[in-house]
Design a protein around this nucleic acid. Structure first.
Lengths: 146, 146
DNA sequence: CCGAAAACCGATCGTGGATCGGTGGTCGCG
DNA sequence: CGCGACCACCGATCCACGATCGGTTTTCGG
């Protein structure tokens, strides 16, 4: 029983399913060392995470499928490089979480984040303010500068 | 609502493994209708999510184990109620993501969020600014807002 | 005490990450 | 040209977790 195929009622579009530990560690390496071969990555991984090349390959492949890594062939090997910066990844992850919880208006979410920042440390709030002001200035000044 | 949600400052080591679809839907219901029995929850779930009571029970139980729901016995049945508000949950989720990606300094994270806000809509940035200013004012004025 | 309504228990499935060994293709060098 | 090294590729497990449910036991009200 219960062996029927059950189409998922709500397929999230852009929320990447969450990254595993090894995947994260790999991203860290790739951020620090752009364009590394599988072996390079392995060598630069923290000792605790050093395992067989195959494992690494699967992980790199998965990351590649998820669009987080690009790769090009260097002779018989691949050179991997991060396609998203740490900030971009964070934004994506944040976006995933938020789109799950978002109930129409963004306000509660923004409020939550401010809340979160405040909860960490009082100075964090000021820092956030600084960054935000800078961003607002940049927008008002240049408008379309990219 | 800003100012009511206060995650305990000591118990910040919570990285809940991520919520599933049904779990989220259940939380939505419990947020809208505090203290509902399993049946109540089932009745108020979107039609698409209505399934057997057992399924609901497992989900409520799991949520309870995760600390997101509290429950008390009402005769032979349980009354469930949300222990975290939507904002708190969001904060927790955000915290989980952030602690994964956080490499020491918060700045990139804050920047990412500002980035994220800007990316949604220009007005969002202004909204964030308003909220932040309000919060700063509140802090500078009262100090301890209890 | 009996029947209904819950909780409780455990089985099964699907997905996704981690892990690895074996196989086969590619390249450099003798 | 052939051989050995290197590496990608494939498939096989394993595990954790959410979703799903049916069957059994507990509990309560009449």
């Amino acid at each position: 029983m219960t062996g029927e195929n059950r189409p998922p009622p709500g397929a999230s579009s852009n929320a990447l399913p969450r990254l595993g530990e090894l995947e994260l560690a790999v991203m860290e390496v790739l951020w620090r060392h752009p364009a590394s071969s599988t072996q390079q990555v392995q060598a630069r991984l923290p000792q605790a995470r050093r395992n067989s090349l195959s494992t690494l390959q699967s992980t790199l492949e998965r990351l590649h499928r998820k669009g987080l890594l690009g790769r090009e062939r260097e002779r018989q090997a691949y050179l991997y490089r991060a396609r998203v910066s740490r900030s971009e990844l964070l934004g994506r992850l944040l976006g995933g979480v938020i789109s799950q919880l978002h109930d129409g208006s963004l306000d509660p979410i923004l409020a939550s984040f401010v809340d979160f920042a405040e909860n960490i440390d009082d100075s964090t709030l000021d820092r956030l303010d600084e960054l935000l002001q800078a961003r607002l200035r940049a927008r008002d000044a240049g408008g379309c500068d990219d």
